[in-house]
Design a protein around this nucleic acid. Sequence first.
DNA 1: CTAGGATCCTGTCAGC
DNA 2: TGCTGACAGGATCCTA
Length: 285
Amino acid sequence: MPELPEVETIKRGLSSFIVKDKIKKTTILCEKSFQGESGEIAGALIINIRRFGKALIIDLDNKNSLMIHLRMTGQLIYDGKERYAAGHPSENFVDKLPNKQTRVIFEFQNGTLYFNDQRKFGFIKVLETKEVENDPFIKKLAKEPWQIEPEELYEKLQKHQNSPIKAVILDQTVIAGLGNIYADETLFMSQIHPKTKAGKITKQQAKEIIKNAKKVMEKSIESGGSTLKDYKKADGERGDYLDKFAQVFNRQGQKCPRCGKIIEKIRVAGRGTHICPNCQKEIND
DNA sequence: CTAGGATCCTGTCAGC
DNA sequence: TGCTGACAGGATCCTA
């Protein structure tokens, strides 16, 4: 679920609350959700928070780091002087904490951080700070849209020429950061049908994909991700990317904002996919 | 090597 | 009401 903008939102929010704070206690409610020894982070000070694609890295002052990946349904909720929640949007952002989906709890001097994860696909793991960039996931990660050059993306698309373009831009080793929402939004803005074979994408289209991926994700980061934050004031109000800015995602049955035709939901690469059948024509062969 | 499908897990919703 | 199957904002593993 959470894609790059949501993880960036978490990074920014959490940084202001937990950097320079100390981990007093870690409670693991689900073994699968926490890899490594919690003893190795006990008493450590948070010195920095980084993001690699959709992975969050929390660096400690004892040469260790925590890597967090939210996968489909992970959430991080900070409860201190303020509450700050980001990740998988759900009503239980406003539940009492911990709740049924809470997997790990970190207690700091000044607040508490809850890692919730309904489906348990996400994880937190302890690793040495110097090993972060050797982690298999991080190591294979491609450049993000802000760093990749159109030529480089184009070359990579040729290597997956028979796969639908949507499947390829979801591949984090091709371009990092896009997930199901922003892939659909990017392809809509680029007027490319998601089933188009990657080998048919032109250099100009590769350039468009990069440009629009940046655009949709920047817009989302500006609005706090498609998630919810600081609900103490907002009273459960949702992060408003999906409501305000998403043009096709989850809008099947509604009118296309560009041409007025009805948006359809189809299946591509095993994922629910939203398109305007008029703006995104399928052209294979 | 690529491509596609199954898989991890819990919860919700539509349809009968 | 209860059951069933489909599906879900991700990534990996297995097979052909």
